[in-house]
Design a protein around this nucleic acid. Sequence first.
DNA 1: CTCTAATCGAGACGGTACGTCGCGTCTTACG
DNA 2: CGTAAGACGCGACGTACCGTCTCGATTAGAG
Lengths: 186, 186, 186, 186
Amino acid sequence: MALDARLVRTRAALTAALLALLEQTAFDQITVRQITRTAGVGYATFFRHYPDKQALLNDLAAREIRDLLELAAPVLFASDSRAACLALCRFVDSHRTLWSTLLTGGAATTVRAELLVGAGRIAAARPGADDWLPADLKVVWAVGGVIDVLTWWLRQARPYGYDRIGEILDRLVVGPMTAGPVTRRP
Amino acid sequence: MALDARLVRTRAALTAALLALLEQTAFDQITVRQITRTAGVGYATFFRHYPDKQALLNDLAAREIRDLLELAAPVLFASDSRAACLALCRFVDSHRTLWSTLLTGGAATTVRAELLVGAGRIAAARPGADDWLPADLKVVWAVGGVIDVLTWWLRQARPYGYDRIGEILDRLVVGPMTAGPVTRRP
Amino acid sequence: MALDARLVRTRAALTAALLALLEQTAFDQITVRQITRTAGVGYATFFRHYPDKQALLNDLAAREIRDLLELAAPVLFASDSRAACLALCRFVDSHRTLWSTLLTGGAATTVRAELLVGAGRIAAARPGADDWLPADLKVVWAVGGVIDVLTWWLRQARPYGYDRIGEILDRLVVGPMTAGPVTRRP
Amino acid sequence: MALDARLVRTRAALTAALLALLEQTAFDQITVRQITRTAGVGYATFFRHYPDKQALLNDLAAREIRDLLELAAPVLFASDSRAACLALCRFVDSHRTLWSTLLTGGAATTVRAELLVGAGRIAAARPGADDWLPADLKVVWAVGGVIDVLTWWLRQARPYGYDRIGEILDRLVVGPMTAGPVTRRP
DNA sequence: CTCTAATCGAGACGGTACGTCGCGTCTTACG
DNA sequence: CGTAAGACGCGACGTACCGTCTCGATTAGAG
């Protein structure tokens, strides 16, 4: 059952190498050779663990995304959306470097797609009330909005506190979905 | 002043070919050879017009994006945001195939980035009131939201009317920026 | 009969340009574009005068070679071979730059072949006595030897006088063909 | 120390392929793709072994030329020049196909240059007596003469025996260098 | 503590696409 | 309305990377 120690070590090295490279370069521009050299691993060894580059990225992202979605799901349906948003931002804040890489680095497209799929699956399981907003647009909207705000946040040099972003998220993303028709400030 | 007729013809052929291919394949997967074959043009000829694949896409996207932004700009600042949203959607609707390709095809990332830059430039020229929402996040948010909704829209098999999407846009994107703090429906 | 004046001018320009370039570069490395630019002539114009690069070189070389052969022929058959050799060298000396280019530049192979053909034709017309040396080898030998010596001569920084080379030619090339079996110096 | 077996096999295949093609085509007209296809080797693989076409030819020629020069050197300096010439011709005769390709095929220019360099190096090591014939001209002359005669020989349909050519070589090339001033047959 | 099988490094290899260059043709705009 | 300029199709170049493969050389973990 327990995996060979070398196996674990090599995969960790590859994952770490990809993350390191993603901080500098777009995913598409990274070559397998760069990854293996950075990881201090033989070139062919890469393919003994992953069928290709994309598989490594997926493996890497999938784990984190699964965790994030467990926190993000309530954002869509929670009764207390503000608390949910705050929890979400606190999670991202505590994995700041990783998520910074995932969202602002070259993997953004993959992560966005992966998140959409995950969120869609969750939403499908909880059919919401019939609404002025189609259900799947709701998902696209929520995921897109969250990613946009988080990406912006993680790009800031002196970042805002997670509580402030949580509040912004709540107002920008959740608000208009639950709120009634637009009402202007006086 | 007038350009050589062959020059115009070739560039048009290349642009059309790329668009055609983008409907089927992700931009990164398209090869220059596919483009030139589709365009009925010699391989090397491509490089006499564009330094590389990306340049052709940029050239193609930049034109449409410029037009779109002239319509989209008011969305951020118009007093009558609903009318602005409707105009925006009507424009996209009347170039449906093209924008469908640009947003749902392989060029999405480029178009998003390009739109962000353009919108950022416009926004910078009009310093808004100091707000609970940072100015650049506002831009990211608005552009991201518009793209997300439009992308979803263009992906629908039997699309909604542009007027309905315009209203959704107004409520989802513009609403929370101009509205006061979240107010729940009773 | 009289050729168009422009025609003559263009051909002269092309010929001169090729010669100029041959001083620096091997013939194979010279491009038609270089030639036309150097000649101050449109690219396509080249092909209105010569079917390709080689044709220009042939045209250029053929004329000089014809002249040279009229002097060189006697070398093979003259009763006074020394005088013939001297005449040959005097001719080359008086066209030193041109022949320097032809023999030490990139056209050497062509010139050698062209000379062989010319000399062969002359030799065929004058069937020599049956000999220990096959007639066609005689031609190859004589032409090769003359070219080798001349090439070496033209490459010298401070060249020998043409009279000295004439004498060397006589001893090296003509001597063994006319002389009896090898006789060593005591 | 021992080279990878695949490496050896591939290089041998490439060398053989080039030789085969050289029998039909001038070196300049041969493409790397022809070579690799003939060798049954991937195109890019060629460049893992040789920086370009010329390098393969050099590699191929250099080996044979080294062997030849070890036999040819005595021609210049041997006391018994006739025996040396015979040995030289016997060597070429026993590698007839290869040398036929090298001298009468498209590689002639390269081989001639390569031979000149090699012979020059050997001659430089043995400063000869001060002579009426400059030392370096002597080398040019000897190498050129040997090549001319051998080339002619190898081109003959029904070739002369190597002994006859050896004698001719001796009389044509060696004779005039060692003999005194020209003496005519009575 | 050994033995054996899994894992590894190294890198050659067949492919495919790249972007460049030169040839020789053929169209075009201009004088 | 003819001609110089140059766009074009073609195809070879040399480079880069992919994913496969074959080598030995460790080296982990079961006996």
